[in-house]
Amino acid sequence: MKALAARRHHRLAPVVLLLLALLTTGGVYAALAPSTAKAETVSTADIETGKKLFQANCATCHGANAEGTDGVPSLVGVGAAAVDFQVSTGRMPMQMNGPQAEAKPPQFDAEQTAALAAYVASLGAGPAIPTDEQVDPTQGDPSNGMALFRTNCAMCHNAVGAGGALSEGKFAPALWETSERNIYQAMLTGPQSMPVFNDANITPDEKRDIVSFLVEQREGSAGGNALGALGPVSEGLWAFVIGLGLLIGAAVWIGAKSS
């Protein structure tokens, strides 16, 4: 310690400090932006398989080299995260035209999805599939997630993610069943009508907070059956169906006893 203290005015000290700072920054960046890490681990064989799958299943609309066709977006630069989101939720390949591509049972298994993602990622740099740690709800802060969700997401997805309507038959889906990874990817890539919330807009940690808030909502309400968490409309409906239904039933019973 004494030796270190004695040399702190050494003329090379700033250089050492600078090196240390660069190393730390680089290390932290590498840790926080592991996007490329996963993309780089894929083999060229994966990319080849992905290309074949793409040409057999996706090229009709997206073009032979994913360059897009009339009214269908190019996939160059959308990244592995977008492919993984669309394919693993069954939204792509799309089976029919409609206001929006809806989730359905996925058509490809995990391996095929990874191959497709690798192929599309190889076409141009884009957001990578988040790591398990990035989407771990236990590491997030649900309170901060709630505040962020309320400001950025609730106007379409409802206060607790029960879903909501958009224009022309489009809708923001309910998030009860959506996997943590898919929630994260949706924010990152902005599928369909959803805006992109990039890492400058909502940082990776904040995205995890939102995931954490949404997962907390799945525990249900402390007050009993949440009635779909749709707010006053479903409450009013059930007040009539159950409450007044029972009470009028009782009134009929009481009135019938004498007449």
């Binding site: 609730a154 409802n158 206060a159 007050g223």
Partner: peptide
């Protein structure tokens, strides 16, 4: 009903702030 059916769980909506409006915002029936 009070014991089994949740109603107006205000912590879902959060404390009032003039900026946000969530989908499914309606008054009572």
């Amino acid at each position: 009903m009070g014991g089994t059916m949740a109603i107006n769980n205000i912590w879902n909506y959060g404390p009032y702030d003039p900026a946000p409006v969530s989908a499914g915002t309606q008054p009572d029936w």
